[in-house]
Design a protein around this nucleic acid. Structure first.
Lengths: 150, 150
DNA sequence: TGAAAGCATACTAGTATTATAGACTTTATT
DNA sequence: AATAAAGTCTATAATACTAGTATGCTTTCA
């Protein structure tokens, strides 16, 4: 049930971009900054952000003083969207996947116990990941920081 | 968020064994039967069942007329146990894993947004997988079959 | 015009996955 | 006792995936 480094780095980067967006209008940040802030290999991150851009979740500005910024408001981007771009379907097995359904080897899908349970797992993961936006994450982080300060 | 074939086959096999246990005292089934019933490569399944045996979830009988059977009642074996044996930790990232904790690269784990959300995901998966026993699965399958019959 | 930044692909080393093969041990049957 | 059936154990192989590196290109600003 692993999240790949690719997915992890992508999520981290998107959270940083969401935080930046709260502080200044566009919230533009350069690869180098993200890479340094979160210990992510810059060249690897480059690929990841490019993929997110091609998926429409990020915009970028080329050239001197360029960088990346969110294509929508942080409350319009869910973690599920990000993970799907970088790591593929959320479902543990394809026979319960919405975006990549494929039949499995069982005699009858309708009475397959494994499928029932894995359907539950898929739904649980999706409820969290599709139900959590970048805005929710940054809010939660802020709340936690307040708590620690007191 | 994938379940490996190894994990999938193992779960399928355990469900078959649980069903067998309902029908006859020991519920002993041979590799070959499981392999045929669910289209699983026999030699691969062999390794998987061996791992489950070494983990204490299965017992076996060697020689002619031998086979595998559950080491405990189906209501004493959770899907979580099976998955952990075959696929390792349930957690999407190690920094929220109970059985394989490892720090991640973030500056402060306490205020890491990704960690918070992935903690939720881990808990959701664990609630389902650790909270579902083989007995529950076979009951559910039976209920579904009744429904279809009517 | 040159440096800074993203764009795009190609490549690679290592590891994990999904098996397959073969020799060995135990047990029941004849 | 011999044979065949079944699990045990370890090695190997083919393939794909992961996590990164490298390299050259294009755009933009000063």
């Amino acid at each position: 049930m692993r999240l790949s480094k690719r997915g992890e780095y992508g999520l981290r980067a998107m959270i940083i971009l969401a935080e930046a967006q709260k502080k200044n209008p566009l919230g533009m940040v350069q690869i180098k900054e993200i890479s340094q802030q979160d210990q992510i290999p810059a060249k690897f991150l480059e690929q990841i952000l490019l993929a997110l851009k091609n998926a429409g979740l990020l915009h970028s500005k080329m050239g001197v003083g360029g960088g990346y910024y969110l294509s929508k408001q942080p409350d319009q981007i869910s973690l599920g969207q990000i993970v799907r771009v970088l790591d593929g379907p959320l479902a543990p097995v394809n026979c319960v996947s919405q975006m990549a359904y494929e039949p499995c080897g069982c005699p009858d899908e309708n009475t397959c116990g494994l499928r029932m349970v894995m359907g539950d797992v898929r739904n649980a993961i999706s409820e969290i990941l599709d139900g959590t936006t970048l805005a929710m994450v940054t809010d939660r982080v802020e709340a936690q920081i307040m708590k620690g300060d007191s």
